[in-house]
Amino acid sequence: MKDIDEGMSLVEHLGELRKRIIWVLVVLIIGMVIGIIVAQPIIAYLKTVPPAKDITWNVFSPWDGIRMYMSFALVTGLIITLPVALYQIWSFLKPGLREEEQKASLKFVPFAFLLFLIGLAFAYFVVFKMAFLFTSGISEKLALQETYGISQYFSFMFNILIPISLLFELPIVIMFLTQLRILNPNRLHKIRRYAYLILVIVAAMITPPDMLSAVIVSVPMIILYECSVLLSGMVYRKQLLKDQAWEEEFGAK
């Protein structure tokens, strides 16, 4: 690493950060433009598959149609921007990492994007459908006529999809923080009971108010946490071995 990198001033760091943020914003804008283009065919497709297949959608405001385009533009933009944002974060932190840490942490970027997509699929095909069927069942029991506004329907969907997709990033975040020596498996073991409690609360907040739904969502979340602990342990053990090798080579001198 060059001396100029090691001696970067606060102004230079802020300039570097500004450059990274600008790149992310540019990609986000491009992604939103793509989202506006693909919004109509995506909405048309979603209208033909369960649970929306037999629903007659309505608009309750002149802005609802535009709001749908902007909602899909934002979500599409966020999905496209995610790997770029992760890479920019890695690039910003890169000067403070060792060479082996740089290579190891860069591998997290594609896996983080893959986990986000898996979380998105789980949220839509499992949690959202389960939540929608639950609320529809309540309306049916009360003999209520279901009239759905398109804006309310997709707001309900996105409020479930986005948080769960982000929660699926937990293993990557913990591995990355372990790589930076901020976290380690010992700390994760100590906070396990609090982590479980938080995950159960989050699962209860984004699912219908019944025990079965909360369990269906909280179990994968807890499994993700335990996988995170295992992955953190793998990273941590490699760090200990490297530290021990360094001590044996240079410590005795």
Rank of each mutant, 00 (worst) to 15 (best):
R237I: 07
L188G: 02
R192A: 14
P171L: 01
V173T: 15
I222N: 08
I164F: 00
E169C: 11
L199I: 03
M234E: 00
G233Q: 00
C227A: 15
L230N: 06
V219E: 07
K238L: 09
I162W: 02
P209W: 03
Y236Q: 07
S232C: 07
I223L: 15
I222V: 13
L199W: 02
V173A: 15
M221S: 11
S232H: 05
N184T: 03
E169S: 12
Y225E: 04
V200F: 15
V215Y: 03
I164H: 00
R192N: 10
I164V: 02
V229A: 10
I162E: 04
V219L: 04
I223C: 12
P163Y: 01
V235H: 11
I160T: 13
V215G: 11
S213H: 01
L161N: 04
M157T: 14
I162C: 10
R192D: 09
E226V: 05
I206Q: 01
N184L: 06
M211W: 12
R181Q: 15
E169Q: 15
Q179E: 10
I191F: 13
F168Y: 00
I162K: 07
M211Q: 11
S213E: 03
R237M: 08
V200P: 13
V200D: 08
G233P: 00
Y194A: 12
E169K: 08
V215W: 02
P185D: 05
A204S: 14
R237T: 09
I164L: 01
I160P: 13
K238V: 03
T207F: 08
Y225L: 09
I201P: 15
V217W: 00
S155H: 07
Y194T: 05
L167E: 07
L180C: 10
S228W: 03
R181L: 11
I191T: 13
H189L: 13
L231S: 14
C227V: 14
R237Q: 14
Y196W: 14
F176R: 06
R193A: 11
I201S: 15
A214I: 07
I206H: 01
I216D: 02
Y236E: 03
V200A: 15
F158S: 14
E226R: 00
F156P: 00
I222A: 14
V229H: 09
R193V: 07
F158Y: 12
L197V: 06
Y225D: 04
I160D: 10
I172K: 06
S155A: 12
R181S: 15
L188C: 03
V217T: 14
P171C: 02
R192L: 13
I160Y: 03
L197K: 09
L161H: 00
L231V: 03
N184R: 06
S155V: 07
F176D: 11
P171D: 00
L161C: 08
V217I: 11
S228V: 05
L161S: 05
I174E: 02
P185H: 09
S228L: 08
I222Y: 04
A204R: 12
Y194C: 06
A203Q: 02
V235T: 14
Y236L: 04
T178D: 02
S232A: 14
M221V: 04
I201Y: 10
A204W: 09
F156T: 00
V202M: 13
I222R: 03
L183Q: 05
S213Q: 03
F154M: 08
S232G: 09
I191D: 04
V200G: 09
L170R: 08
F168T: 02
I198D: 06
P185W: 07
I162H: 05
F168L: 00
